[in-house]
């Protein structure tokens, strides 16, 4: 679609190329992220921890403190585990750009190796959830039907029935999950970033987490009935009924009522 658009409107080519590049980066990242994850559970080398500590002192210690114990407003990182770092830094939420109701996702500030090093350092501070393996997050191995049942009970109230996102109080929100990588989905469940609650392995077993990932893998803009209208429910349907339906019908009525020239 976007390539077609580029051919039709030459002026927009640079923007589209940029988009394509971003998409490519995202895709590459999706492929690469689990590989780096593999390394984490295996005992990280002292080298990696050291690199991580340097990165931490340079980029994170201003807020989280030199010993990573945080302050009243900033959480301690002792015991959050490598999964939390891989999620927060990998989705660009950390380092935080500005204060706000919650940290926003943005392009990641560090490369794979740096993130792995940071994760290794934080994991060395105290035991916490590790970065999941490829197999743990492979949608093909999950049961989407069970995933849907679990998603409905545990996630849909904030993230919407198919993961399109939703509002929380005071400007916070639960993000759309369609573009989130399986590894990040898993890490978010395991660590409870921002205001999201924690779903540990007793609440949602690793298999159940994978089922949820399998369910989300089926979701997106595609709907059997046509354009998905953002999967936002009756409000967007009502808006479209007025804009498209009543718009076309009133236009037709005006045509019928107008005198032929």
């Amino acid at each position: 679609m976007k390539a077609l658009a580029a051919r039709r409107h030459d002026r927009r080519a640079p923007a589209v190329l940029l988009l394509l590049a971003l998409l490519l980066t995202g895709a590459l990242y999706a492929v690469l992220a689990p590989t780096s994850a593999d390394a984490a559970p295996a005992a990280p080398s002292a080298d990696q921890v050291e690199t991580g500590e340097k990165l931490f002192q340079a980029n994170c210690a201003t807020c989280h403190g030199p010993d990573a114990t945080g302050t009243d407003a900033v959480p301690s990182l002792v015991g959050v585990g490598a999964a939390a770092v891989d999620f927060q830094v990998g989705t660009g939420r950390m380092p935080m750009q500005m204060n706000g109701p919650q940290a926003q996702a943005k392009p990641a500030q560090f490369d794979e190796e740096q993130i792995a090093a940071l994760a290794a350092f934080v994991a060395s501070l105290g035991p916490g959830p590790a970065v999941p393996s490829d197999e743990q997050v492979d949608p093909a191995l999950g049961d989407p039907a069970n995933g849907m049942a679990l998603f409905r009970t545990n996630c849909a109230m904030c993230h919407n029935a198919v993961g399109a996102g939703g509002a929380l109080s005071q400007g916070k929100f639960a993000p759309n999950l369609w573009e989130t990588t399986p590894a990040h989905l898993y890490e978010a469940m395991a660590t409870g970033p921002q205001n999201m609650p924690v779903f540990n392995d007793a609440t949602l077993t690793p298999d159940e987490k994978r089922d949820i990932i399998a369910y989300l893998d089926l979701q997106g803009e595609d709907a059997p009935g046509g354009i998905g209208l953002g999967s936002l429910g009756p409000v967007s349907e009502g808006l479209w009924a007025w804009v498209v339906g009543m718009g076309l019908l009133i236009a037709a009525a005006v045509w019928i009522g107008a005198r032929s020239s």
Binding site: A149, T153, V198, N200, A202, T203
Partner: peptide, 21 residues
């Protein structure tokens, strides 16, 4: 027990910040 699986819940399994239906 956990909704919908019906697994009983051990107090020690509930971590701080988690929510169980």
């Amino acid at each position: 027990t956990i909704d919908p699986t019906g697994r009983p819940i051990k107090a020690s399994d509930v971590t701080i910040g988690s929510v169980v239906h």
